[in-house]
Nucleic acid binder design. Structure first.
Lengths: 224, 224
DNA sequence: CGATAGCTTGAGAGTACTCAAAGTGGGTGG
DNA sequence: CCACCCACTTTGAGTACTCTCAAGCTATCG
C-alpha cells in the first residue's frame, strides 16, 4: 500500500517482500531524480519498492500537478489502466525496486501465489485511495499535514525516547501537491506545528515529533 | 468504472455487461433508500449495476461524510479490502444488480474470463480514482461541479437537439459530499450556471445542458 | 391543505490563495 | 577552504473563495 492517509484504526501493515518462488528478475536501481516511467508508457512491469522512496504524480494540461502517492518500501507501484501507466514515477532518493512482469498480475500463469499477492495489493490500493479522498475533500490544512506526518511517523518513524523521528525525502511542494495545498500554506502550517512544539524540524527534512498524541489529535480534527 | 472525474481525453467506455458463461446468479433488486451493504461487512459478492444508481460513501468519526462514487449501469462495485467492504452502499433509485462471487475475483476458478474482467474493472477503478484526486485537490467549486455534470452529460445524457439532458438521482448534499463542498456552495454554483445559461434546471433533478462546450470549458478551468 | 425535508439565498467570517520579498542551505567554482 | 549562487523555503500583506449560521422558499407526501 502507498503512503496515503488511512482512517485512525485502519493502519495497515506494509506488504512484506513478494520474494516469490520464481527465478528472480534482477533488481532495478534508481538515482534521485531519475524517472522509472511516465504517464502513457506501456506497462511491462510492476515494481515493489525495496528501498528508497518514489513519487507518483500526474499533470493537468494547465500545469497543475497532483501527487498521487509516495511509494515506500513494500509498496507495489505501476498498476496499469488499459495497459498503460497513468502516472509519472520519479525517484526521490536512491532506490531499489523488484520488478514483476505485468502478466503475473493479469493472468496468474506460472505463479498463482504471486498473482494473488499482486491482486491483493491492487485491492488495498483502492481502499487506501478512498481514505485519501476523505482527506482531500474534507480536511483543513492543519488536519491534512498532521495526517500526512502521522502516517509517516507510524510507518517510517524511529523511536527516540518519547519522541519519534523520520526524514522527509520530498520537497514542500511535493507535499503541497499531495495534500491539495500551496507550498506557502504547507510551510506556514509546518511553522505553526513547530511553534506549538508538536514537532521540531531539523534540516527542513528531518522531523522530530515531540507530541505524537497531539499530532494524532490534530489529524483527526480535534480542536487544538 | 465509476462516475468519477476523468481527464478530458480519458473518457472511458462503460464496462459492457459481464454476462459470463456461468449459470447466472439471480439478479439483486433494490428499492430507493435500501442499503446493499455497509462498511465492515464481509464481502461475499461483487455486483455489476444493471440498472439504477447507487451511492458508495464513508463516514468519519465526527460525522463528516465523503461520497466515494456513484455506481451507474456497467459499474462494478464491492471490491473488498482484507475481505471487508470499505464503504456503505445505498441505492438512490430502484436498481438491479448482477452478483458475482468474490471468489471469481480472488481466484479465477471456474471462469478465467470473468476473473480477468473483474480484475480489469479493479484496475480501471484505481485509475478513475486518481482522476478524482485531481479534482478534489486542485479544482474550484465551479470546476468541480462542471466536471461532475460533464461526466454525467457524456455518460447518461440524452440528445435533445443541440442540448443534452439527464437526471440527477442524488441530492445536493450527495453531490456536495462527493465534490468536497457544502450543499450551500453546490446550490449557489448551480444557480450561477443557470443564470449564465450554461444549464437549465427542471424539477431540481433534471439538468438540461444548453451550452455543452461552455460546460466543458468550465470544467477545465478556463476563465469564463 | 398543512407538515416537512430539501433547496436556495443572504450576510458575515475565516481559511487558504496570490503576489511579493527576504531568508536559508547545499553545491560549485575560484 | 571560502564565497557566491541558485533553488528551496519562509514570511508578509492583501484578496478571494468557500464556509458558517440563519432565514425563507419550494416541492412532495401524507
Amino acid at each position: 500500500m502507498y503512503v496515503t492517509i488511512p482512517d485512525q484504526d485502519a493502519i495497515s501493515t506494509p506488504l512484506p517482500p513478494l520474494s516469490g518462488t520464481l527465478p528472480k528478475t534482477t533488481e532495478t536501481r534508481l538515482k534521485p531524480g531519475n524517472f522509472l516511467y511516465f504517464e502513457g508508457d506501456e506497462v511491462a512491469w510492476l515494481y515493489q519498492v525495496t528501498s528508497g522512496v518514489v513519487r507518483l504524480s500526474r499533470l493537468l494540461a494547465d500545469g497543475r500537478r497532483q501527487v498521487i502517492a509516495f511509494g515506500y518500501p513494500g509498496d507495489i507501484i505501476g498498476f496499469p489502466k488499459d495497459g498503460l501507466h497513468h502516472t509519472d514515477c520519479e525517484s526521490l532518493t536512491a532506490a531499489r525496486l523488484q520488478p514483476f512482469r505485468r502478466s503475473h498480475l493479469e493472468n496468474g500463469e506460472g505463479d498463482p501465489q504471486l498473482h494473488h499477492a499482486l491482486l491483493q495489493a491492487a485491492l488495498r490500493e483502492i481502499s487506501a485511495m478512498q481514505d485519501h479522498f476523505m482527506m482531500l475533500g474534507r480536511k483543513s490544512a492543519t488536519e491534512k499535514l498532521a495526517s500526512f506526518l502521522c502516517v509517516l511517523m507510524e510507518r517510517v518513524g524511529e523511536d527516540l525516547g518519547a519522541y519519534r523521528q523520520f526524514t522527509l525525502p520530498m520537497s514542500r511542494s511535493d507535499i503541497a501537491d499531495f495534500l491539495g495545498l500551496t507550498t506557502e500554506t504547507v510551510s506556514r502550517t509546518f511553522t505553526q506545528l513547530r511553534k506549538s512544539k508538536v514537532i521540531a524540524i531539523d534540516n527542513n527534512h528531518t522531523i522530530i515529533v515531540q507530541k505524537p498524541t497531539a499530532l494524532v489529535s490534530l489529524s483527526l480534527g480535534d480542536r487544538d
